[in-house]
């Protein structure tokens, strides 16, 4: 549709500019240095969202359909799909507050699984390193502080 650089490549170009040109030049200004590091991380997040956003949207749509017992199909336009997902996610939030998922059982477990899956998807975009730590803790409970919380040393 457009000439290269593609959107992800534009974002990468700005990030590389910050990392190689700006950060070394502002090292003495602690606040600006820190804020610029944050800015480069924000661009990484934006890049990962472009990569994974579509797949995560479809996955969340399917799970919310199951939870709200609704079989609507995802609108074809990106913007429309996002807006509708937000609206349905807000409907789910209201249902939780109204106590619809209070009773122990399959619906509540499905909700929990949806919330955990959605948090994992958000971490894939926002902080994949934390996700990696969580996976390691899952494989080796000795690394998980919470598992040993009532043990002395």
């Amino acid at each position: 549709m457009y000439d290269r650089p593609a959107l992800t490549e534009l974002i990468d170009a700005v990030r590389m500019h910050l990392e190689t040109r700006v950060i070394p030049a502002v090292r003495d200004d602690r606040k600006l240095y820190f804020q610029t590091l944050v800015a480069t991380n924000v661009l990484r997040i934006a890049g990962r969202e472009l990569e994974y956003g579509g797949a995560h949207l479809r996955a969340q749509w399917g799970r919310i359909n199951a939870l709200l017992e609704d079989e609507s199909s995802l609108p074809s336009g990106d913007q429309a799909a996002r807006e509708l997902l937000v609206a349905r996610s807000e409907r789910l939030a209201a249902a939780i507050r109204a106590g619809v998922f209070d009773a122990a059982g399959q619906q509540r477990e499905m909700l929990y699984e949806h919330l955990q899956a959605s948090a994992i998807e958000a971490l894939i975009v926002a902080n994949p390193r934390l996700l990696q730590t969580l996976v390691q803790e899952g494989q080796n409970p000795d690394l998980d502080a919470w598992e040993g919380r009532n043990r002395a040393e």
Partner: peptide, 23 residues
């Protein structure tokens, strides 16, 4: 940009609270 970035850190705490409740 620092305040903006905190919005996407929220899920770290959501994930942790969900995980602990799961346990």
């Amino acid at each position: 940009v620092e305040l903006a970035s905190l919005g996407r850190r929220s899920v770290e705490m959501q994930m942790e609270a969900l995980r602990l409740i799961g346990k």
